[in-house]
């Protein structure tokens, strides 16, 4: 009898202590990006720069999941936002894009895509639409340096 309880305790400990292994790591395709702000119209702040060349791919899990986003950018000066677009739809809703996220150095992880349904073993993807902006008062990279963001996407249970 005792070994049944012991087995239960072992199972509980294993679930609590073992590292969680997702079916596959998410992946950003499209490489690293450079967004350049180079022009302005008279009477207006510099024009924004946008880029949608990167895609986030990940594998669905056995539970409802979401994707969060965060960044580290020491000494950040300019504004960078990201929005999930073109979330794949293979026979149903594959997730809901959160409102555009403003990426700030040291920010907590913010919801990026929510309500990604099971089942696991199916790949899904979304386009990463980045928008960079700067005001004249924020200066320029020649004098101040570039903003270098390490943007992290994490798949977690919702």
């Amino acid at each position: 009898m005792r070994h049944i309880l012991f087995t239960g305790i072992l199972l509980a400990l294993a679930l609590a202590a073992l590292p969680v292994r997702g079916a596959a790591q998410p992946l950003v395709t499209g490489g690293n990006l450079v967004l350049q702000i180079t022009a302005a119209l008279l009477g207006q702040e510099p024009a924004m720069a946008t880029n949608s060349q990167c895609t986030l791919e990940w594998q669905k899990e056995h539970v409802v999941t979401k994707v969060t986003v965060s960044t580290t950018c020491p000494g950040q000066r300019f504004t960078l936002r990201v929005l999930a677009t073109n979330i794949s739809r293979r026979g149903g809703i594959e997730g809901i894009a959160a409102p555009e996220v403003t990426l700030q150095d040291g920010m907590p992880a913010m919801d990026f895509i929510t309500d990604v349904p099971p089942p696991g073993s199916l790949n899904t993807s979304a386009t990463l639409q980045y928008t960079a902006s700067a005001t004249f008062s924020q200066g320029n990279s020649t004098e101040l340096g570039n903003d270098l963001h390490t943007v992290t996407y994490t798949v977690v249970a919702q």
């Binding site: 690293n32 702000i37 020649t142 270098l148």
Partner: peptide, 30 residues
Amino acid sequence: ALAVAAFAQRASAQVFGSTAHTVTVQVAPI
């Protein structure tokens, strides 16, 4: 019960994986 409780606790904070890439914002003198 112990196993279920542990599973539920894991599921609520479960991280399945993460990835990162670099995004550089460059502002020219304008």
